[in-house]
Nucleic acid binder design. Sequence first.
DNA 1: TTGTATGCGTTATCAT
DNA 2: ATGATAACGCATACAA
Lengths: 363, 363
Amino acid sequence: MTNEPNVGTEARRPRQDRGTASPSDSSAPTLRDVGARAGVSTMTASRALRGDASVAPDTRQRVLAAASDLKYRRNELARNLRTGGASGMVGLVVPNLANPFYSELALGVETALAQRGTKVVLSNTGGDARREREVVEDLVARRMDGIIVVPTGGDQSHLDPARLQDTPVVLAALPAHEIAVDCVLLDDFGGASEATASLIADGHRRIAFLGPPAVWTISERLRGFRSALNKAGIQPDERLIRWQQRDVASAARVAEQVLTLPDPPTAFFCANSRNTLGVCRAVQRLGSDAIVCGFDDFELADMLGISLRLVTYRTEVMGERAASLLMDRVDEVRAGAGERKPLRQSTIPTALTRYTPLARRAT
Amino acid sequence: MTNEPNVGTEARRPRQDRGTASPSDSSAPTLRDVGARAGVSTMTASRALRGDASVAPDTRQRVLAAASDLKYRRNELARNLRTGGASGMVGLVVPNLANPFYSELALGVETALAQRGTKVVLSNTGGDARREREVVEDLVARRMDGIIVVPTGGDQSHLDPARLQDTPVVLAALPAHEIAVDCVLLDDFGGASEATASLIADGHRRIAFLGPPAVWTISERLRGFRSALNKAGIQPDERLIRWQQRDVASAARVAEQVLTLPDPPTAFFCANSRNTLGVCRAVQRLGSDAIVCGFDDFELADMLGISLRLVTYRTEVMGERAASLLMDRVDEVRAGAGERKPLRQSTIPTALTRYTPLARRAT
DNA sequence: TTGTATGCGTTATCAT
DNA sequence: ATGATAACGCATACAA
């Protein structure tokens, strides 16, 4: 060996020989190692492992054996780099995974994407808008094929694909605000209006509305509530419309106030489950026979000892749909610079579910 | 330009010039594009964006401006390939994200890892052991820095790091079986025994045990139950020990059977929340005054209208701990081929929480 | 059928 | 302070 500048492929190879490397070697074996052990070139090893037809059967066998011996696994990250292709990963950004809404959404996304062999990279923002921005930046830097976001905060400009290297983005649960992205929404308006209509159909005329401070989804529910009343020619009593309750305790307090008015409501429509629970508590405490109706299902709804009708929906379906919309865009991008299909907005239907308490002290 | 074989760097460059590329160009800008636009080499661009000190201030400014103009983001995947470094991603494999136990665990993992800038790649197995194997293989191929698994099924051989290119693995909720991995467990034995002891302290002597078919965690709880009885010199009545109930309905049925025995128990210890709920239902239906105690917290435990004492714990802490154990191993591997620390097994403590129903029909 | 040369986007290294 | 070159692990294009 002379000191000439690098000439020839094997000569300049700085990597240690792995064909006979000790098993405790810490770095993973590469195609080159497999090829060396099988006595073929890196390319032949690559082809054999990919199942390329132009590899002699016995060669393939030797390569497969070598790969198996070395416990070789293709480095998909390197592969994706070379094929200029998709990373096979999608980012999912949610405010709080401990909330069943988001975890069920995540499950739906995972289920739909797993069928395509695409992985989900999870990010929890804790409802912090700044963190959401950072996280999305990071996901783009990691070359996600697309990103699904349940947005926090009003400004969505950081979610605009135009600013994100054209990474497709899909919004879930909230509509897009001044950015060109697809989104999946719940039928907040329809669900609320249907539920309210069912109360009206049962003869209720004085119906209270309790909810948390109005973000978009809540105001849609209030709009649905008003719409149903309006359609029935009922003038809502504004004193019965209360939307400052963030937790069960304050909802219960407000419900008790409302129930002790001179002319109390005969039914409640609650815009989220915390308000529903608060109202249930108040109704039980006061022994009221007001009917409780609310948005959002919750576990044990049949064990509260009180009749309940709830606007329910399948959150996983929302996740699946979001994944589907996203992958359509991903495929579109990968197909080339052709025309983009128009923006899509998908609405997940709701249903009205009635829960009846089980019999008590049956004798 | 002659037709000589490739000579020189710029001459062989097949890539289109991006310095003035149209903004609708679909592929992401690279360091070369940034360098070209700033009038410097790729390396200088790289150094400037990394914050390398050996870059002239005004050069840095030009590079930063160019990067900003092009909306450049470093390709972290390519970077990791070159630096031979960690992918900055960890796999998380759980049976069912819709189960709060797993989603809270996931939240804990995400929270702990986010602080290190490590991302979580999620996989849901649906409790399918075959899928678990596939998923883990895939995660290794995608070069996760480590993998956290809540294992399904008895055989864990596919989770052995020795078979996974030495990818560190941590088990959560279940102990390792014949594989060399760290794990995080819940104090099933301690929690159950403490809860049972509290019933005994209250004077209960006939205590029923209801649970689902015994996997490891459930048999630990049964063992804790028996241990507490034993310690108090109480001989358990085997007819009151029932562990075939997978759902609320069957648990309720069995609880009713037990309650209508000639000599019914005065208290129940339930090994999971479905059995707890079933027992609550039975107790309510029959108007029994038996005390209900159970393992696992659940929402609305304070709204069932029945006194409850539950073995509770913080699932996110388990996730955080799993992440911590895993990253210790990851750092260990990256530090070199030195000695490995001995295996660790971490136990998450439980607490006994009492829920009292709210007052009813207060006047 | 198999191998060689080259490049994906980045950085380590050595030159200048 | 900046640039040229090679390499990370893999795959495309072309040669043999």
